[in-house]
Amino acid sequence: MVAMLELKNVEAFYGPIRALHGISLSVEQGGIVTVLGANGAGKTTTLRAICGMIKTTGSIKFEGREIFGKLTESVARLGIAHVPEGRGTFEKLTTEENLRLGAFTRRDRNAVAEDMDRVYGYFPVLAERREQQAGTLSGGEQQMLAIGRALMLRPRLMLLDEPSFGLAPMIVQEIFRIMRSINENDGVSMLLVEQNAALAMDLADQAFLLETGEVVMSGDTKTMKEDESIRTSYLGY
């Protein structure tokens, strides 16, 4: 089986500083993969490298095609939706306008309208906030909006950057539950970056552990969860 996304020996740079030291990972078709690690381990950088937001070397293949060196907007057009760190809400626009921006690359108006309803189905609270300025939504609602907006692209792969950040545990569980059903119903593969290891391990099939820009461990989440030493030394729960 060909991996949907495959990173090989990817290095990434912020100016002269190397933030990723040759990492390799892959996401299977329809799978959920999580990248775990502490602050500064290179989780966000990995997603940025995939989206062509920073200078990188190495190979990044999406559905067998090399996407390394492509512009961010071209990566989006291929069907990779990025739910960025801090949600990236367009604060002055309404909820609905934010969702429309998610469908920016699409011309199929009717299908866009259907997808809008689908997003409102997943997140009914967004329907109530339709005409409201997105900047006035709560943190949880903005996270839902960010995921909904990504869904409007009709992505095949979703990159999620710490969707649990700064949210109440109840809301986080709700959001993770919906992410699972998006994965199951819409067949969207996911690459999830998280600090909340316990939650992410429950959702994902596979995990990669990053430490200072390197993959130090990877494998099935099931086996990893059972291994006491991994749990205490890397996952901290």
């Binding site: 989206c51 937001m53 512009l71 961010t72 907007e73 990566v75 989006a76 057009r77 939706a81 990025h82 960025p84 990236g88 809400t89 367009f90 604060e91 002055k92 626009l93 306008e97 429309r100 921006l101 998610g102 920016f104 690359t105 907006r149 692209l153």
Partner: peptide, 24 residues
């Protein structure tokens, strides 16, 4: 569409580009 693209680039150009908005 054009107006939304303008505002999106202003508010969050990284997020706009990852929606496929051609800032260039």
């Amino acid at each position: 569409r054009t107006g939304r693209a303008f505002v999106a680039i202003r508010d969050h150009h990284m997020a706009a580009e990852s929606m496929g908005v051609n800032a260039g």
